[in-house]
Write a protein that binds this DNA or RNA. Structure first.
Lengths: 210, 210
DNA sequence: CGAGTAACTTACTCCGAGTAAGTTCTTCCG
DNA sequence: CGGAAGAACTTACTCGGAGTAAGTTACTCG
């Protein structure tokens, strides 16, 4: 009779696979977020969940696999938050600003999530790199789409240029986010977004009619 | 008499510390560049140099330390190449273009060096992160300097804005470089540099007189 | 030639990723 | 109800690589 209720949390019994996977993923997200990829051991996550290590391997295959699962989920949330604001904006200029602000705010408000995303570079071996790139590419695609929308409809768009611009913005925002966290989240999301907007918008206008 | 000459390479005898350190660093650069941080073991580097592992630890302290030493040296070369071109340019606009082109060309021509720089993210634990940031900050300082030079002399420059712009450019160029290598070094350095120049220059002009 | 020291080695420890080979639960069919 | 089938889960390892304690050799200078 150590448990508070009988029906709510059945002590620590077996769960079905889906539920256990979620539990493990939550724990992994938390611990990776606190200690980083290197600093976290699989034993630690297993102990935290109250489960043995091989179970995690059965469900996620490897440490990289588990980390990647965290990363995908976090990036999906971030992408969702940003694209929601972007799509809600009345015009392209405001969409860009809204997207930028949301990006920086989200990372301020989810510092643990952020550490995981920053640690993305940890995945250097095996197929995990590929998968991590695909996760990032989703973001680049969103940006590229915005850039394309902003170009004149009739003319051929130079797809290479679009890609360059999209990767520029992706790289810039990631690096700025890292810099901000080392700087006590300063300058504010609004200030960074505004400066970036001022810096880039003119250029986009120019490219539009070149 | 297995060696080709007697005087050139004195078989495999002791060297003084400085020489050995260089030898180790060269080997580390090569092997890290080929196999990445994770994929490289200290034993492997030791074997390659023909020396025992504890010697490396005596000279470089840790795997992170050794990697960091490689990183610093490589980044210093890169910084030197870029700043040389920047300083040689007749005006700010051409300086920016020259700097960008040089950056991308250098990385095309030194793919192994580049892998090491990309793997920078591997350093997440301990004091190595700090040191790695300082190495990167050198670059950001060069960019910030250029941005400042381009602003009107009399007025207060908004130092926060300068920092934001500098980190933007740093982040963008790094991410673009990674993207290009996964894309068979395409688009060309010139094209990327030109697009980036077109994108950013207008914005810099605008900020100049705001 | 012998002390002193710099260069270097052997032979470990320890920790963490990953695994082989089971052992319990739980369900569902007769 | 009984008992097979399979899912959930564990114990008890291996193996490799980072890092180290305690020396051993070679060079150098008085």
């Amino acid at each position: 009779m150590t448990s508070t209720t009988d029906n709510a949390v059945p002590a620590k019994r077996r769960r079905d696979r889906a539920a256990r996977e979620r539990e493990i993923l939550d724990a992994a997200e938390r611990i990776f977020g606190e200690r980083g990829y290197q600093g976290t051991s699989m034993d630690e996550i297993a102990a935290y969940v109250g489960v043995s290590k091989p179970l995690i391997y059965q469900y996620y295959g490897s440490k990289d696999g588990l980390f990647l699962a965290c990363l995908s989920r976090l990036r999906a949330h971030l992408l969702e938050a940003v694209s929601k604001e972007v799509l809600a904006a009345p015009d392209a200029e405001q969409a860009m600003y809204a997207g930028l602000v949301t990006w920086f705010r989200f990372l301020d408000e989810h510092p643990r999530a952020w550490s995981v995303i920053v640690d993305e570079g940890m995945l250097t071996t095996g197929p995990a790199v590929q998968a991590a790139d695909e996760v990032r590419a989703d973001f680049v695609e969103l940006i590229a789409m915005m850039v394309r929308l902003n170009l004149p409809a009739g003319r051929d768009t130079d797809e290479e240029e679009v890609q360059i611009i999209a990767w520029t913005i992706s790289g810039a925002t990631e690096r700025l986010a890292i810099w901000r966290t080392k700087n006590n989240n300063s300058p504010s999301p609004e200030k960074v977004a505004r400066t970036l907007q001022d810096l880039l918008w003119q250029g986009l206008e120019t490219l539009r009619k070149s």
